[in-house]
Nucleic acid binder design. Structure first.
Lengths: 149, 149
DNA sequence: AAAGATTGATTTTTCAATCTTA
DNA sequence: TAAGATTGAAAAATCAATCTTT
C-alpha cells in the first residue's frame, strides 16, 4: 500500500472541505436569488463563449466533467425552460448541437452578478491576488489539462 | 456588484475542477474495489476517532458539512448494513448517539488501503510535500475554522 | 416556542440497458 | 461493432413539513 504523507493528506482534506464550503455558499446565493443552479450557468457560459452559440454535448461533457446521461437530463431541463435548444447535425446524424437561446443569454446575464458577488464573498474576500495565483498554479497540477478553465 | 479579479476567478474555477477530478478518482477506486462511498468512510473514521466509538449526529453533521435530513438517511443505510447503530441518549431523550459496530471498524480498516492508494495516486503523485503544505495553508483560509481536519 | 431528529413527496443522479446512425 | 446520445428503473439528495422532547 502507498500511504500518502501527512502533508498530502492535509492538503487533500482541505481541498475537499474548501470546495464544499465555497460551492455551498455559491449555490445558496443563487437559490436565494431565485436563480437556477450553477451547472446551468456553466452550460450557458460555455455556449455563449462559442461564436456560433453552439457546442456538441461531447464538448460540454468534457469541459464540465459530467457523465453523458447526466448531461442529457440537464439539457432536458434547460430545454424545457427555453434556455437552450437541440439542433440536429447534418454531417453526422448521430450527433447534435446544443444552442443557446435568447432567453438563455438573458439568463446568463441575470445570473452573473449574483454569481460574481458570491465568488467575491467566498473567495475574493479571503485571498489576495498573489495567493490566488499561487493556489491556481498548484491546483492546475491536479486537474487533467483539458479542463483547465 | 463586486466583480472578482481575474486571479480570483481562475483560482475559483481550478478549485472546483481539481476537487471534482480528485473526488471522482477516489470514488471510482472505492467502487472498483466493491466498497461503499466516501461519505461512509467519513462517518466510520469520525466515530472510530472517538474514545467511546460514539458521536452525536449533530457532531457528524458539523464535521462533515452535511444537511441533517441527509445524514439521517445516510445513517439509515449504514445501520441497515450493520456498520453503525443508534443508541438513545439518557440525559436528553431528543438526542441520540451514533455508535460504530465491530463490522463498522472492520469496514473502515478494509477501506483505508484503497482510499489511501487513491489519495496517493490523485494528489500524492502530483504534488511535493512542500507544495501540499502550501496548498493546505491557502485552502485553510477558505474554510470555516470548525471543519479544518 | 425551540432543539434534535425523522419522514413523505419530489427532483436529481446513477446504473444498466437501449436506440440510431456510421 | 463502435460512437453519440437517450431512457427506464433504482438509489440518493432535497424541500417542506412533522414528530418528540425540552
Amino acid at each position: 500500500m502507498q500511504a500518502p504523507s501527512e502533508a498530502i493528506q492535509r492538503a487533500y482534506v482541505r481541498l475537499m472541505r474548501a470546495q464544499q464550503a465555497v460551492l455551498a455558499g455559491i449555490e445558496a446565493a443563487l437559490k436565494q436569488a431565485g436563480l437556477p443552479p450553477l451547472s446551468w450557468y456553466d452550460v450557458l457560459l460555455e455556449l455563449k463563449r462559442q461564436e456560433s452559440g453552439r457546442a456538441s454535448p461531447g464538448h460540454l461533457q468534457g469541459t464540465m466533467l459530467l457523465e453523458q446521461y447526466n448531461l442529457s437530463r440537464l439539457l432536458d431541463r434547460m430545454q424545457a425552460d427555453g434556455l437552450i435548444r437541440r439542433v440536429p447535425c447534418p454531417d453526422d446524424r448521430r450527433r447534435q448541437f446544443v444552442e443557446i437561446t435568447d432567453e438563455g443569454r438573458a439568463m446568463q446575464k441575470r445570473m452573473w452578478p449574483v454569481y460574481a458577488a458570491a465568488i467575491e464573498a467566498e473567495v475574493g474576500a479571503k485571498l489576495t491576488d498573489a495567493q490566488a495565483e499561487n493556489l491556481a498554479a498548484i491546483l492546475a497540477t491536479l486537474t487533467p489539462p483539458t479542463c483547465r478553465a
